[in-house]
Design a protein around this nucleic acid. Sequence first.
DNA 1: ATCATCTGTCCGGCCTCTTGACATTTGAGG
DNA 2: CCTCAAATGTCAAGAGGCCGGACAGATGAT
Lengths: 196, 196
Amino acid sequence: MDSFADRTKRRLRDELLDAAYDAIVAGGYDGLRMNDVARRTGVSRQTVYNEFGDKWGVLQAVVVRETERFLLDVNAALAEQSDPIDGLRVAVERALTLAGDNPLVKAALSQPGSDQASQLLTTRGQQVLEVSHQRLDAHVREHWPEIPPEDATSCVDVALRVVLSHIVTPGPPPAAVAAQLARVLTPFLSSYRRQV
Amino acid sequence: MDSFADRTKRRLRDELLDAAYDAIVAGGYDGLRMNDVARRTGVSRQTVYNEFGDKWGVLQAVVVRETERFLLDVNAALAEQSDPIDGLRVAVERALTLAGDNPLVKAALSQPGSDQASQLLTTRGQQVLEVSHQRLDAHVREHWPEIPPEDATSCVDVALRVVLSHIVTPGPPPAAVAAQLARVLTPFLSSYRRQV
DNA sequence: ATCATCTGTCCGGCCTCTTGACATTTGAGG
DNA sequence: CCTCAAATGTCAAGAGGCCGGACAGATGAT
């Protein structure tokens, strides 16, 4: 069920992703060399292809893992609030702040030779959206079961897309964006408020 | 040189030894089951045989690893003293104290069904002696180069055997044994003292 | 135009782990 | 004393994954 081989497999994947992450942060997507990833992990180049298919697969896997870690942090911020509106505001602010400091986001958006990488947040952003949506949705349903699933999903979707847009195209500071979004969505969520 | 496969191999060995260690501490040598070690590590029974040869090999490997860890601690105590006699006393006391608290030593000496295990400290103790001697000798030569190698070796050998004897057959408390040994060997080492 | 570098693919060989079977030993219980 | 169950130790066949080398194609620099 959880054999040594399974754990080894996961570890291999994880170490490969570590190496790839470092390479991308250092030199953007174009600076990512399959051979470097392999050598730095102490494995053959072929093994990297076996694991991820191609270079694009490596980038996707790095981004998915990073997204999941990112969401853990955002969900933790969500969990600290009992009122849904407060949660929304805090989570949005946290997400935007985190993104601004995230080395991988910086590399994807501002490194020369990362046009392809940035597409994972825009035209090819389904994966990031899906992973994020799934995690946020599950969390919201668990913490605010009184909100109808459909309403929760709608809110998550709206907020998520607005946040992603602000990551790709920064505007006002995080707190301002969070306040704005909270204000706009408050009427929609007013019946579920938990005033302290 | 340090491929992923190498690291995995070391990790496998280490996890097997962890499982074996726990089993021995819990149930003595007789309570050690090859099948349990394998299953607990998530590996087949055959793999355990491939790695250690037989059950006796497992025990030996566990003891060698534990000895090396033990010596790291003792050598750290040695390193804190500038005077060789002080080092001797402090190291002896530390070794006896550590041994008294060590779960594996307890299991080997007092668990029912560990007669064979206890032999690794007595009639079949060459391995433990050699490993310990090697580590201590190297450490002494590095820290007190002014002591002739032959004298250093002799002192290490005498002290080591006395300490091992006191572990197997406890007598006075650690501090008393340490003081006694230091007093006896002081004349032999007097010319190398570094009085503070 | 040429050369070097990188991606992506294929394949044969090798090594390790797995699986199942088997003989042998040992201890407990009828 | 005999039997059964459990554990050790050995063997061989099979599978899976990694390695190493080779190759074609694309790309960019000189």
